[in-house]
Amino acid sequence: MAATRFIRGLLLAATAVLVLTPATAGAAAAQSDLTLTIAAKDRAELPRTVSLRCEPVGGSHPNAAAACDSLTTAGGDFEQLGQAHTGQCTMELKPVVGTAHGTWQGRPVHFEKEFGNQCVAASAAGAVFDF
């Protein structure tokens, strides 16, 4: 009788592992890979482009960890990044356009926003466009 309970326990544990493994594998595959660009609206300067990878953090972004943290805090919603403007920038009007294309946790991303200048872009987007 004790042996039967032991075997049933092992079978139940093995079934739980098999059921949970696909969900865990799918979550691990939800990597985020983005191409970020900052371009002068008047095209007077060459655009700057970096790659950003989150989960694990990497890419050519100079502060990838902070950029990933900002996006995670915003739930991957680039529109929410503008709510975090905390820096002090000059009133210089030199518009730049920030774009992001790729995937965030497996979801497609296509984002474009105009900022008053590079400082505002870097400050408002919580390190995402700070490059």
Rank of each mutant, 00 (worst) to 15 (best):
Met1Gly: 13
Ala2Thr: 06
Ala2Trp: 09
Ala3Thr: 03
Ala3Lys: 09
Thr4Gln: 11
Thr4Trp: 13
Gly9Ile: 08
Leu10Trp: 15
Leu11Arg: 08
Leu11Gln: 11
Leu12Thr: 12
Ala14Glu: 04
Thr15Ser: 15
Ala16Val: 07
Val17Pro: 02
Leu20Cys: 10
Thr21Asp: 09
Pro22Glu: 13
Thr24Ser: 15
Thr24Leu: 14
Ala28Asp: 10
Ala29Trp: 08
Ala30Val: 05
Gln31His: 10
Thr35Ser: 13
Leu36Asn: 01
Thr37His: 12
Ile38Lys: 00
Ile38Ser: 02
Ala39Asn: 10
Ala39Gly: 07
Ala39Pro: 01
Ala39Thr: 11
Ala40Glu: 06
Lys41Tyr: 06
Asp42Trp: 01
Arg43Ala: 14
Ala44Ser: 13
Glu45Leu: 07
Pro47Trp: 12
Pro47Leu: 05
Arg48Lys: 08
Thr49Gln: 10
Thr49Cys: 09
Ser51Ala: 04
Leu52Tyr: 05
Arg53Cys: 06
Cys54Glu: 04
Val57Pro: 02
Ser60Val: 00
Asn63Cys: 00
Asn63Lys: 04
Ala64Asn: 00
Ala67Trp: 00
Cys68Val: 04
Asp69Arg: 04
Asp69His: 00
Leu71Pro: 06
Leu71Gln: 10
Thr72Val: 05
Thr72Glu: 09
Ala74Lys: 08
Ala74Phe: 02
Gly75Trp: 12
Gly75Cys: 03
Asp77Arg: 13
Phe78Gln: 06
Phe78Glu: 01
Glu79His: 13
Glu79Tyr: 13
Gly82Met: 12
Gln83Cys: 10
Gln83Glu: 14
Ala84Phe: 09
Ala84Trp: 00
His85Ser: 04
Thr86Val: 00
Thr86His: 14
Thr86Asp: 15
Thr86Pro: 03
Gln88Leu: 07
Met91Leu: 13
Glu92Trp: 07
Glu92Leu: 14
Leu93Lys: 11
Lys94Ile: 10
Lys94Asp: 09
Val97Ser: 11
Gly98Tyr: 02
Thr99Gly: 06
His101Met: 05
His101Gly: 08
His101Asp: 12
His101Trp: 05
Thr103Arg: 04
Gln105Leu: 01
Gln105Ile: 00
Gly106Ser: 06
Gly106Tyr: 05
Pro108Leu: 10
Pro108Ala: 13
Pro108Phe: 14
Glu112Ala: 15
Glu112Asn: 10
Glu112Ile: 05
Lys113Gln: 11
Lys113Phe: 11
Glu114Ala: 15
Glu114Asp: 10
Phe115His: 11
Phe115Leu: 02
Gly116Cys: 04
Gln118Trp: 01
Val120Cys: 00
Val120Phe: 03
Ala122Met: 07
Ser123Met: 07
Ala124Val: 07
Ala124Met: 03
Ala124Pro: 14
Ala125Ile: 01
Ala127Pro: 03
Ala127Glu: 00
Ala127Phe: 01
Phe129Thr: 00
